[in-house]
Design a protein around this nucleic acid. Structure first.
Lengths: 244, 244
DNA sequence: TGTGGATAAAACGTCTGACGTATGTTAAGA
DNA sequence: TCTTAACATACGTCAGACGTTTTATCCACA
């Protein structure tokens, strides 16, 4: 048989209870990214994929359909299925992947955060309940804990900012904040010791101001938090750029 | 035969070149909204739908899958397929359909617009090129024209606000603004003569300030525009509410 | 009478094979 | 050389079978 090394790598083992189609979808992402099949190229046809992954053609079609709706693939009937983005929509919910100057994009993302998140913090200071504050404190601790353990804290960081948005009692920003912040995660994912120490500190300052219903304080703390982050990221990305 | 009146209404005629699955998806939306099948209820099973729409089960599954990824349906294996939002993601890109108090939601949407759009207008005043301004003027005219003709101007209105976002030269807000504003369209779609007259006027004030690179002026004009709109919509929705 | 487990029914998930239709390519003919 | 017809490729749709999960039913047993 051909593809034996492929089989070992990608052939699925049916034991999970997660739906097959979804697992194949994840495998397909991995396959495209590892191969790699770059933007504009076409992936193997449905029969080949079915054979490679050891599943039926309908399952492949499910997976492909999923990635089409996530903006990663495009189907041209009679011709083939093509890669149109390197990321599925979960990692890039705003569809920013089509821009290639990640550096500028990162700064623009922070400009947007600076537009809304200080205001959100002020709303939060106005509307947060006691339970909300408990939750915020817990998240602050978790972010710090994860950071100290050396793991990636970004997911938790987004959770914290989303929780602050939740405190604002405006459900629209509660949707918006994770969208924007996870885009930051994708396009400006830098970590740095000094940055983290400062982040943990300003996080607590924001939460404290919210707890005291100090709107101006919350707004200012958030501005500081984001400004410092923006500055550091700008510096680090400039270094990264100059190395090219 | 049963369902004859149904057949007349929903049975598809195979003549278009649009893919069957996509057409069925649209039919399914219409069916759910007209029936109506409200949030939380389940839709008929796949076999019934296949028979009703006169297509194969795989086609129904394609359509359902599409609406799942658009956040309108949820499939519970072994149980059925349920409506979780009254709108597909195109009309409700932020997934706000799961909330049922449209009134409060509309106000929250305007609060968010008030957070970002004045700031965007200020950025636009700073960065707009001459061609940008020409485009803005053109859109102002078009909005007015469409309004005078009695047609629905909201699409064009969103275009104008998106164009202003484009002038800011921040590509993130250029993505964000149409998301938010089309949600406004879905959840707070009110028209009113007085509102429109004022809207057309303040639109021009914003554009004029942008043209003059008057950041403060642009910000203020946008605040006025949105505040007035929020106020009117609040009043009209309160009337609507009290009639219940 | 009440409860727990076995059983059946309902509904989605996946596989297979066949045929339809759009697209692209190639080769023959004018 | 250009056009056109045939052919190959690849996705689209259908039909039927069987598996798995969830939910409802019902009966036995305490």
């Amino acid at each position: 048989m051909m593809n034996s090394e492929f089989d070992e790598m990608y052939q699925i083992v049916k034991e999970d209870k997660e739906l097959l189609g979804n697992r194949i979808e994840a495998q397909l992402i991995r396959y495209i990214q590892e191969e790699p099949i770059t933007v504009g190229e076409k992936i193997p046809n449905e029969f080949e994929l079915a054979e490679k992954f050891g599943v039926g053609r309908s399952t492949i079609r499910e997976a492909v359909k999923g990635l089409v709706s996530k903006g990663m693939l495009e189907v041209r009937r009679g011709s083939g299925t093509y890669v149109i983005s390197s990321y599925p929509a979960e990692e890039d919910p705003l569809g920013l992947g089509r821009y290639d100057d990640k550096y500028q994009l990162a700064l623009e993302l922070f400009d947007v955060r600076l537009m809304i998140e200080p205001e959100i913090a002020a709303y939060a200071a106005m509307n947060a309940t006691e339970e909300d504050v408990v939750e915020l404190r817990r998240l602050c601790d978790e972010v710090e804990e994860i950071y100290r353990s050396g793991e990636n804290h970004v997911r938790k960081d987004i959770e914290l900012h989303t929780a602050i948005a939740h405190c604002s009692k405006n459900r629209v920003v509660e949707v918006l904040v994770p969208l924007i912040d996870s885009a930051v995660h994708t396009f400006a994912n830098v970590t740095h010791r000094e940055l983290m120490e400062e982040t943990i500190e300003t996080h607590r300052a924001v939460v404290e101001a919210i707890e005291n219903h100090d709107q101006v304080g919350a707004r200012c703390a958030m501005v500081m938090h984001l400004t410092y982050n923006r500055q550091m990221i700008k510096r680090m990305l400039e270094q990264g750029n100059s190395e090219n």
